[in-house]
Write a protein that binds this DNA or RNA. Sequence first.
DNA 1: TTTAGTACCTTGTATTGCATAGTATTAAAA
DNA 2: TTTTAATACTATGCAATACAAGGTACTAAA
Lengths: 109, 109
Amino acid sequence: MESNIDNVRAQMRKGMLEYCILCILAKREAYASAIIDELKAANLIVVEGTLYPLLIRQKNQGLLTYRWEESTQGPPRKYYCITDKGREQLGDMDTAWQEMETAINTLRG
Amino acid sequence: MESNIDNVRAQMRKGMLEYCILCILAKREAYASAIIDELKAANLIVVEGTLYPLLIRQKNQGLLTYRWEESTQGPPRKYYCITDKGREQLGDMDTAWQEMETAINTLRG
DNA sequence: TTTAGTACCTTGTATTGCATAGTATTAAAA
DNA sequence: TTTTAATACTATGCAATACAAGGTACTAAA
């Protein structure tokens, strides 16, 4: 049986990963593995099979673009960067996040 | 077409309502309509069809109990109150929430 | 006795998030 | 030359949420 808190975390995380991706790419462009590393550094464990569909979806929504860059350590890397539309969406997400923080503080206080 | 921020809010909210219910009931027992009112006061709009199944599930998980109380303004009310197990779960959820806050601050900072 | 207000509950469904598992490509290392 | 490590990508499907819509039942007032 799965521990309860794991499920709680999983549920809370839903809808947050897209926000996290935009947060990362708002600071600098990055390729998938680097994004995964940064998420891991923030204690959010994400695997490739989770991240790629998200990146593709955000790219298709016009929130991201990408460019190829050669690497001496394997195949070319796909560097994603945020678009103007992506920054706009990120602003909306900041707002939503702050509202959620406010709501929790109101209820918990 | 639905506005983007509404969708963002909806996604972020997923998984948060159970936490919010426990937050409310940790302060005082309440019946469904009162819970909806308090959620609304925190800018979280929830309808009955959403709340009732959640309350029933949390009751079945042993997180809540309830007692009936007569009302002079209509049918009896079902007052829910949080159990010890519910407070334990609430503690886990507080932890998960704080971890999420930390993660976002790390990524956004 | 009908109507309005309050309260509780159920069912079905759209959405969709994301995990699992597997494939393909490149270059360096053995 | 073969293996390994790093990277990119796809397909499939489970699990879970929250909402919409509809139903039941009790009380009091018109």
